[in-house]
Amino acid sequence: MKIAILKLRDILLTSIHVDLTDEDALEFQADVLEMVKKTEAKGIVIDITAMNVVDSFMARILNETASMVKTLGAEAVICGMRPEVALTLVEMGRELTGVETAVNLEQGVDKLRELIKRRQ
């Protein structure tokens, strides 16, 4: 399952709308990094509103992707995590640490813009 990564001026938007298998998640991570490098985007918003299940592997992928994007000199914001998902991750002890988060896409983009401004 290929996840589309869209370029919107200087930032990237992507929405994970299906529950990914482990391979898909890894492919997604590679795609994100490739796109960030190719487009020289200043940041990326990863929307996970439609994700019903985030297992520990997916949580790790999200964590890693965010810090990898930062290493490439861009910012990353994850938005739209469902309450059930947040609860499960906390219960599992797999918190997303050091990742910027937002409630919805709108606030996610706002936050990303703010982060980009702060970096410059």
Binding site: A86, L87, V90, L96, G108
Partner: peptide, 12 residues
């Protein structure tokens, strides 16, 4: 503490 962590992950 758990509640705060979960809320932060949701972006609040």
């Amino acid at each position: 503490t758990k509640t705060v962590t979960a809320a932060r992950m949701m972006g609040a």
